[in-house]
């Protein structure tokens, strides 16, 4: 997990029905004062905006340009323009489709499991009695803060047939001889990889859900309880519907993050035995093989896929990302 989008964007109702009406200047004609405010706004927001644009958009354009060439770093004089044929190679190659499949599998499974586990953890944090609340919240933050590479090594050493002890611990299980080489086939290797990803990132999702839980009005749930609704009914009829936005934001962020999975796989299997994902394929092609053209093309495809996912999610969930000014007080 390379960058963790940690915060919930302000998902706002279309027009904030704020009784104070903001400062009531939203539709005012542009006065001298408004122009000065706009100038000041850009002076303050400009530097951060400029850096983000420069660091992201220049490389994207460069990557797209490079992807049109057959270009190997160790043979610079043989660089030639090949149009879109690098993309042809990618889309006609089973290696790409299998990497896409594995990436999708990891994304779907981890997000699904994390959503359930994360909700349970959020409930624990929300309801915990005072004496254990601090402790619960502290330990949950440990996986969140730990370096992904460190987490990957921890899980790898645990399961490894050479330095691990998991095989020993579970050798009593019938049909399991304690000699399983976890990283020698896709199924068990992906199991450990997903396990470690889930351990590392569930706290993030549970904190987003905790924020959502806090928004559920207590009186609604109590009223339902008085009306004789069971705990299960209250969960499905009252709590979850009121958390819809938080759940969707959590899913969106984690799905996009899971789609970029790299660190754990790089450490544990380096893509061997059916654990190759798109990020690793892009890395191995452009950094390992020094095939700048082909590698850039994979990067562009990966970037477009993430963009597409985000677009579908944002449109589908109808999330107003920018929120509005002064809505919350």
């Amino acid at each position: 997990m390379s960058s963790i989008p940690t915060t919930v964007p302000a998902v706002d109702a279309e027009a904030p029905d704020d009784p104070s009406g903001g400062r009531g200047r939203r539709k005012a004609p542009r006065s001298e004062r408004a122009r000065a405010e706009a100038r000041l706004g850009w002076w303050l927001a400009g530097p951060a905006f400029f850096i983000m644009v420069a660091v992201i958009f220049y490389p994207v354009l460069q990557a797209f340009w490079d992807s049109l060439f057959s270009y190997r770093l160790t043979a610079p004089e043989e660089r030639e323009f090949v149009g879109l044929s690098n993309y042809g190679v990618i889309f006609s190659d089973p290696v790409f489709w299998s990497a896409l499949g594995v990436t999708t599998l990891i994304t779907v499974v981890t997000v699904f499991v994390e959503l359930i586990l994360g909700f349970m953890l959020a409930m624990v944090m929300h309801k915990a009695i005072k004496s254990t609340r601090g402790l619960v919240r502290t330990v949950i933050l440990v996986p969140y803060g730990i370096i992904t590479v460190v987490s990957a090594f921890a899980w790898y050493y645990m399961f490894s047939i050479d330095s691990g002890y998991i095989n020993n611990w579970f050798s009593w299980v019938p049909g399991f001889d304690g000699q399983l080489n976890w990283f020698a086939q896709g199924g068990s290797a992906l199991f450990v990889i997903m396990f470690s990803e889930i351990w590392k990132t569930t706290p993030f999702i549970s904190l987003l859900l905790l924020a959502g839980l806090a928004q559920v009005p207590d009186d609604l749930s109590e009223a339902a309880a008085v009306d004789g609704a069971s705990w299960w009914q209250r969960l499905w009829r009252v709590i979850l519907p009121n958390m819809k936005a938080a759940i969707m934001v959590a899913v969106l962020f984690r799905a996009l993050d899971a789609f970029r999975v790299f660190d754990s796989i790089f450490i544990m299997t380096n893509g061997a035995y059916g654990t190759e994902v798109l990020s690793l394929l892009a890395y191995r092609t452009s950094i390992g093989r020094l095939e700048i053209g082909l590698g850039s093309a994979i990067s562009v495809v990966l970037f477009l896929l993430v963009g597409l996912l985000a677009l579908i999610a944002v449109k589908g969930f109808n999330v107003d990302l920018a929120g509005g000014r002064g809505g919350r007080k």
Binding site: P59, V60, Q62, F262, S279, A282, Y283, G295, F303
Partner: peptide, 8 residues
């Protein structure tokens, strides 16, 4: 996706 940025 950070990986898309590293080569450029």
């Amino acid at each position: 996706p950070v990986i898309s940025l590293v080569t450029p």
